[in-house]
Simulated assay, not measured.
Amino acid sequence: MFISLEQATAFDAIVNKGTVQKAAESLNKGHSAVLYLIRTLESQLNLKLFDRSGYRNKLTTEGQTVLKYCRKMLDAQNDLRAVCKNLQHGWEPSLKLIYDGVVDFDSIGNALFELNEFKSPTEIKVVSAFLGDVENKYETEDADMMVTILPIKRRELQAIPLRPFRMFLVSHPEHSLGKEKSRKLEIQELEDHTYIRVGAASHPIGLSTDNIDFSSYFYVNDFHTKKQAILKKLGFGWLPEYMVKTELKNKTLKILPTEIQNTSLFNPKLFHRRAELIGKMGQQLLKSFRRQDD
């Protein structure tokens, strides 16, 4: 039995795009050519990969398993291309890093600054995302590295630990929760107030508030906006220590006294592909991050 990369590519495209026609367009192939590839694949495997009873192609249980291994084939092909390109040129044409916006950019910026001395032609792109979207963006943008505070699904990636940081549950001192001074706030009291969150999706990250159902939510796009919303007394929420040091000192923000944990420690990590899959500039960036960890 032989499965070609062309068949695996067509199979993956149909799943990603939803229809044979859209897959054909994305691959710059004719509809009949892609249909032939998937039908010959099913014939060779003697398996039905799609349930075609509905409007959209839906994977069968067998199809889900075959897709997993086809994608491993395609990943191996991409890895081989990356290795060959690095062997041929040394300096990679581009380097992309996805990082969680809750992490202090200073450590990332310091590592990137060290790259200036190499005068490399490599184009460096740094993109911020938040929580679970970091790994999603790493996948969709085919990035080289990512910095995240969450466990990841891709076990083949290697990790470099970065500097830990703390998060505090805070409000403005004049917010109704912030006015409490003599006792610890109960969960029910927190539930009755607006909780400010980055992003609409809920990603449990080990905070004491993860499982609380608040009466209302205020969603923002990033932590700097979240900080401004809390300063405007629009609600309360978690902010990283590096972002609120000044405000806590001058008492324009306050760590809430609560029965639940009001501080939490996070250990961000830089995840990257195996060393041989990374070009010269990527290798230098990894060295910069390791020096910070020493």
Score class of each variant (00 low, 15 high):
Gly109Tyr: 13
Pro93Ala: 09
Gly101His: 01
Ile160Pro: 02
Lys125Asn: 06
Val134Leu: 10
Leu169Phe: 14
Pro151Ser: 12
Val102Glu: 07
Val170Glu: 06
Trp91Asp: 15
Leu95Pro: 10
Met167Ser: 10
Trp91Gly: 00
Ala111Tyr: 08
Leu115Glu: 06
Lys125Met: 05
Asn136Tyr: 13
Arg163Pro: 06
Met167Asp: 07
Leu95Met: 08
Ile149Glu: 00
Thr140Leu: 08
Leu95Ser: 09
Lys119Arg: 10
Ile160Asp: 01
Asn110His: 13
Lys137Ile: 00
Phe130Val: 12
Ser171Leu: 15
Ile149Cys: 01
Tyr99Asp: 02
Ile124Cys: 01
Gly101Tyr: 09
Leu169Trp: 05
Glu135Met: 14
Leu131Pro: 04
Arg163Phe: 01
Thr140Asp: 06
Gly109Ser: 14
Gly101Ser: 13
Phe113Pro: 03
Ile149Val: 07
Lys119Thr: 04
Tyr138Glu: 02
Asp100Ser: 11
Ser171His: 15
Glu156Ala: 14
Val147Pro: 00
Asp144Met: 02
Met146His: 15
Phe118Asp: 01
Glu92Arg: 06
Pro121Tyr: 00
Leu97Glu: 03
Ile124His: 02
Ile149Ala: 05
Ser107Glu: 14
Asp106Leu: 12
Arg155Pro: 03
Glu92Asp: 11
Thr148Arg: 08
Val170Asp: 06
Pro151His: 11
Val170Tyr: 01
Val127Thr: 15
Ile98Gln: 00
Pro151Asp: 13
Pro93Cys: 10
Glu141Ala: 12
Arg166Pro: 05
Ile98Tyr: 00
Ser120Asp: 02
Thr140Met: 05
Leu95Arg: 06
Gly132Leu: 11
Ile160Met: 05
Tyr138Trp: 11
Ala143Ser: 15
Pro164Ser: 15
Lys119Asn: 15
Gly90Tyr: 12
Leu115Thr: 03
Ile124Thr: 00
Val102Asn: 07
Glu117Thr: 00
Lys137Tyr: 04
Lys119Cys: 03
Ile124Arg: 05
Asp133Thr: 09
Leu150Asn: 04
Glu117Asn: 04
Leu131Gly: 12
Glu139Lys: 14
Ser94Lys: 11
Ala129Tyr: 08
Arg166Gly: 03
Leu162Ile: 07
Pro164Trp: 13
Gln158Ala: 10
Leu162Ser: 04
Leu115Asp: 03
Phe130Tyr: 14
Thr148His: 08
Gly132Ile: 08
Thr148Ile: 06
Glu139Gly: 04
Val103Gly: 05
Phe118Met: 02
Thr140Glu: 10
Asp104Glu: 09
Tyr99Glu: 04
Glu135Leu: 10
Ala129Ser: 10
Phe113Thr: 14
Asn116Cys: 02
Gln158Gly: 07
Trp91Ile: 01
Met145Leu: 12
Gln158Trp: 14
Asp133Leu: 14
Pro151Met: 12
Leu169Met: 10
Ile160Cys: 04
Glu114Ser: 15
Val126His: 03
Leu157Met: 15
Phe105Glu: 07
Pro164Ile: 15
Ser171Val: 12
Asn110Thr: 13
Asp133Glu: 13
Ala159Tyr: 11
Arg155Trp: 09
Lys153Glu: 13
Ser128Ile: 06
Pro93Ser: 10
Ile108Ala: 01
Val126Cys: 02
Ser171Gln: 12
Val127Pro: 05
Glu156Tyr: 15
